[in-house]
Amino acid sequence: MVHTIQSHLLAGVPASQSIAAAQRARDLKAAGRDIVAVTVGEPDFATPPEVIEAAFSAAREGQTKYTPVSGTTGLRQAIARKFQQENALAYDPSTEILVGTGAKQVIYDALIATLNPGDEVIIVAPYWVSYPSIARMAGATPVFIEASPEHGLVPTAAQLEAAITPRTRWLMLNYPNNPSGAIASREQYAALAKVLERYPDILVMSDEIYEHIRFDGSAFISFGAITPEMRERTLVVNGVSKAFGMTGWRIGYAGGPRALIAAMTKLQSHVTGGASAVSQAAAQAALQMDPALLAQRAATYEQRRDLVCGLLAASPALDVVRPSGAFYVFVRVRDTEVLGGRPVDDFLLDHGVAVIAGEAFGSPGWFRISIATHDADLQAACTRILSAFSR
């Protein structure tokens, strides 16, 4: 009889709390509960028709075989053009670009390929749920910086300096941020880069998956483009899932230093091999589309942001952080005693609304609302939240 199934590393890693919360809401609705779910970080927009047609055409033409581990030549070239045109980053598509089955796999590739037991990874809270878990699976130790609303939920140079030790291997950045929607300015990035110049062995991961979802005319700069030195130490992660409504196509990508991309490609060759040929054809078509579509979708998210923030601002029990990007609203409960010692997601489920508790993002006392759904659900969710915190 097998007494132990999980490895010691996996045993210390929880399942994704955001995925679990979304499934819990689905289960309750299936059981007949009246639940408004604003949990899932998935666009409600469809994949563009021309992207679907490109996938059909690829399949009809026989593009249904194994692909190169690092991605098809056409897609890697399209990614390199995107980085050059939109981010002022020049990458060799043959050696400095990697395509994976989603941005999550690309992040996994990077950390597993480079970390050893005893290494440390600096992670800024609030953070995307999987960063600490992947670091732990690699045997490394997450070191957390708590970014404050007073600094726009972006770490300061002093915070970064204080977190660095001789064991620091990576700094993880994610702007526009999930869950807060914060966007780092050029000045904030420059301050962080100045600190990192004194620590040449630290790599930086800049997760830019929400790059095209920005509000109020907010500017965006890739961390890799801050200085030439940072370009040589930064892995820029992106994908087609959020901006183009292509979550199920499972295509993410990264640009970065040649040696790092080579290590990640070596790992991926043993884990999944190359991503789906049809999905890569679809992603290539998406990256070649008129960017006006992305602007239209961002404008819709901005209207939803205004709706949710306007409604929840009426509650004296809540602090609402007005996001500059992504498709989430992050809310702080001013007096957590009202929760009666319960997690905020459990508390709100009693009132018929499903959210993601801030604990999943390293921010207890907060909760995340996804605005990637239509106005009627957002209106209903906010009404129930206001009712819950008015008692």
Rank of each mutant, 00 (worst) to 15 (best):
M1P: 09
Q6T: 09
H8P: 07
A15D: 15
A20L: 12
L28W: 13
K29C: 07
V36Q: 07
V38Q: 00
T39R: 01
P43M: 05
T47R: 04
P49H: 13
E50D: 10
A54C: 13
S57R: 15
G62F: 01
K65Q: 15
P68F: 05
S70F: 02
T72E: 14
T73E: 14
R81Q: 14
K82S: 05
F83V: 00
Q84R: 15
E86N: 14
N87V: 04
A88Q: 15
A88H: 15
L89W: 14
L98Q: 10
V99F: 02
A103V: 01
K104N: 11
D109L: 02
A113N: 14
N116R: 13
D119Y: 01
I123A: 04
A125C: 07
P126Q: 06
S130N: 14
Y131K: 10
I134V: 11
A140E: 10
T141I: 05
E146W: 14
S148E: 14
P155S: 09
T165W: 15
T168K: 13
W170E: 11
L171R: 08
N177H: 10
S180T: 12
S180G: 06
A182F: 01
R186E: 13
E187Y: 14
Y189K: 10
A190L: 06
K194P: 02
L196P: 02
E197S: 07
P200A: 04
S206N: 15
S206A: 10
I209P: 00
S218M: 01
F223I: 02
G224Q: 03
I226Q: 01
P228K: 10
F244M: 08
G245K: 01
M246D: 09
Y253I: 00
G255I: 01
G255C: 09
R258A: 13
I261T: 12
T265M: 09
S279Y: 02
Q280C: 05
A281Q: 11
Q284C: 11
A285G: 06
Q288P: 09
A295G: 12
E302S: 02
E302H: 11
R305H: 11
R305C: 06
G310M: 07
G310V: 00
A317Q: 13
L318G: 04
P323I: 03
A326D: 13
V329C: 03
D335I: 04
T336Y: 03
G341Y: 11
D346W: 07
G352I: 00
A354I: 03
A354Y: 00
V355N: 03
P364S: 08
D377E: 14
Q379R: 11
A381R: 00
C382Q: 10
C382L: 06
T383M: 10
L386Q: 05
A388K: 00
R391H: 14
